[in-house]
């Protein structure tokens, strides 16, 4: 078990130079994720246009793995449809459970996070961002469905 498997160059790069850092106001989706046991906190802001993620920002603090994972996630979901984003969440979570992504799935820099699997206590650091996004998407779809139900009444 080598540390370089965990702290891959690309992870350290995302940690020291996070992409899409900041907040959006207003945002269509605003969701927070926290791991009180390690004190890691993340907040994501998304704008949705034509069913796609048109803008995304995140802020928060935490370990290199949680921050790098959040930064990579924002890069990967930008421009994706919400359906595609949900697929990516599933792919990523499966990857953390030990399944390699299908070859036709382009996960970009996220491949670097595969090394986290060898450090089981750190898996929750890597998944924090993704669990938060999943919750954000669910709330957004829920609200939309509610709004639709109201207008159709």
């Amino acid at each position: 078990m080598a540390l370089d498997d965990l702290y891959r160059e690309v992870i350290l790069d995302h940690y020291s130079h996070p992409r899409n850092r900041g907040a959006l106001d207003p945002a269509d989706i605003k969701v927070e994720g926290a791991n009180p046991l390690c004190g890691d906190e993340l907040a994501f802001y998304l704008r949705v246009a034509d069913g796609r993620v048109s803008e995304v920002r995140f802020e928060g603090h935490g370990c290199s793995i949680s921050q790098a994972s959040a930064s990579m996630m924002t890069e990967q979901i930008l421009g994706k449809t919400l359906e595609e984003a949900r697929g990516l969440i599933e792919t990523f979570k499966a990857m953390m459970r030990g399944q390699d992504p299908r070859e036709d799935r382009d996960v970009g820099d996220l491949v670097a996070l595969q090394g986290v699997r060898k450090f089981p206590v750190r898996i929750k650091c890597a998944t924090l961002a993704w669990v938060a996004l999943q919750q954000g998407l669910e709330e957004y779809e829920g609200k939309k469905a509610e709004a639709k139900a109201t207008t159709e009444e």
Partner: peptide, 14 residues
């Protein structure tokens, strides 16, 4: 500065 405690402990563990 700039290093999270979990990352410090991880490197030390090795």
């Amino acid at each position: 500065d700039g290093v999270h405690p979990h990352d410090i402990a991880q490197v030390l563990d090795q």
